[in-house]
Design a binder for these strands. Structure first.
Lengths: 328, 328
DNA sequence: CTGTTAGCGCGTTCAG
DNA sequence: CTGAACGCGCTAACAG
């Protein structure tokens, strides 16, 4: 049987209230503190967080919903966030929505039912209606990597990220540049495509032809097919920007299957580890993923402590451009 | 304010016991069921799992401790396990031990304090003493990818996995084969090295020279350095087996930096996605990672339901060999 | 089948 | 600073 306050009372003769105070930072006399500590170690006592949560209406857990778990971006987010939250005493319950909106709504309800104190989400798309159960119960929500109106968000400056890539490429003399990006249904892709269009117009004075920025499936396969399509155009691009990590992978696979002569310059996204594996070594738009995670964690903790403004907060971080070899 | 049984009682006139029975699968008369259902939707009622857990002594969460989160192996494990456990109503709290034994002991205590109903762990090393707090409180533990005496374990047949690789290579005429593996401090590496030694002796009649199987740091860098070392030997191997995914990556990076002529045959581990990216396309020992996760989840659920034998259970799964190109 | 009565382990009033 | 008493929301005996 697991020890409770009652067992400590039996050993120390103190009352439950005093013991409770000891564990909650109240003032307890020195001798009594020692009594409690001795009893606790003797009994191998451990606070019961469930009972505690019942009274204090806090489960000391936060829920994290990811659109996929098999991505280095999300893995880093979870790892860093979990570390920070645990430091603050919170457990992290993760759920994978598998990029499925219905599953996402399900797991949100699941988490709300689990009485999580807050929810962090990398959402499937821009639809925020699935958050209703959380809002109804005043469970704070923080979105990562998506700007969601009325919700705290931690994002990167997608337009600036793409613009930095375009600047590098135009500076190197490229005038026909292709983009591998997904459909405009998610904030991230919409911003990156818009950033591409604006930056190209800015630097060349012309809007990019639409065939240079046709939406692809958001997947490695999409990047693969997209790159091949771009190179088959009558006026193919001499440089290609990949709007995320999967596209970068897919495009690289396609390049590897082609003759070396026909390689366009490539600018990819994320994952430094990979850069060493790939020929040609791509230039990479590098997101501050760990910082993103930490900002999100801090935002959660701030909301949980009741601090922070009434309106929703948006934190925007900048990317850096890591220039590769053979690619510009 | 969130609704409780009392609110439902007020709306229906029924007693708390009846409402409880309704939510716990007891027999409740049709009209009463409807009354409760109507009240519940009107009040937007949701069961309070914390209160429930206090009575029933189950938090309906399981803790998962990973030695690292940034590995496709562990990511797949978590993703599949989480899915299955959620299906059964359990939340999954993850913790990253970052391959640090002390951190591992800390998070275990953290999870026990969070009243998790069971713990799944991919342990840092073979030392099981850190599990004591869980054992003391009768929290079932399942180890994944490590054989731990006295603990339920789900593992793969590491010796057979390596043997299948050696068989392929010797069949292709290789007689001098190198191994990239870590030190013998973890079960997995110990088994794979032993499997290598035995299989080579089996097929060639000779024990492999120790310089062909020197331990390397378990990392991409270790694989990189190890492959270069092997190729600089006076009698370098004509084929190399990589004992895990990181070594496979590192070795491939090293190969890419060398001239094509000097490539030995390579057999790697895991990650099919990667295979398409790499030249030469390696032969891969493929672990049934999803099956591993599902077996672990089922084992947990079985223990949670009180079933299963008194002794600890070991489940062993087989790997398959995915033969690549240009590599044998 | 339903209602009544006790708690689960802890935090929080209030007196003292 | 300490103790007694109550209740958080729910489940588990019992009666009826």
């Amino acid at each position: 049987m697991v020890a409770t306050y009652k067992d400590i009372r039996r050993m120390t003769g103190l009352s439950l209230a005093t013991i409770s105070k000891y564990y909650n930072g109240g003032n307890v006399l020195g001798p009594n503190r020692e009594l409690i500590e001795k009893a606790a170690t003797a009994l191998d006592y451990q606070l019961n967080n469930v009972a505690r949560g019942l009274r204090s209406r806090r489960s000391m857990t936060v829920g994290v919903i990811l659109d996929e778990l098999d991505s280095s971006f999300n893995t880093t987010i979870v790892s860093r966030m979990e570390e920070r939250l645990r430091e603050a005493g919170y457990g992290t319950i993760i759920c994978d929505s598998r990029k499925d909106a219905e599953a996402q709504a399900d797991v949100l309800r699941f988490l709300v039912g689990k009485m999580v104190d807050a929810i962090v989400v990398v959402p499937v798309d821009d639809d925020t209606s699935f958050l209703a159960p959380a809002r109804d119960r005043d469970v704070p929500v923080v979105a990562v990597d998506r700007l969601m109106p009325g919700t705290d968000s931690v994002i990167i400056d997608n337009r600036a990220a793409i613009a930095s890539a375009i600047q590098l490429l135009t500076h190197a003399g490229h005038t026909t540049i292709g983009l591998l990006a997904g459909p405009d249904t998610t904030y991230t892709m919409r911003e990156r495509r818009a950033g591409f269009r604006d930056a190209v117009q800015d630097r060349t004075g012309l809007l990019p032809r639409s065939e240079l920025m046709t939406p692809e499936d958001v997947s490695i396969e999409g990047g693969y097919a997209g790159l091949r399509r771009l190179l088959r155009l009558s006026a193919p691009p001499t440089a290609v920007v990949c709007a995320n990590y999967g596209f970068t992978l897919g495009a690289t696979i396609a390049l590897n299957e082609l003759g070396q002569e026909s390689w366009p310059a490539l600018v990819g996204f994320d994952n430094l580890e990979l850069a060493r594996l790939i020929r040609p070594r791509p230039t990479l738009v590098t997101q501050p993923i760990e910082a993103l995670a930490l900002e999100a964690a801090e935002l959660v903790l701030q909301r949980l402590s009741g601090a922070g403004p009434d309106e929703s907060v948006t934190i925007t971080l900048e990317t850096t451009l890591l220039v590769g070899h053979e690619s510009t």
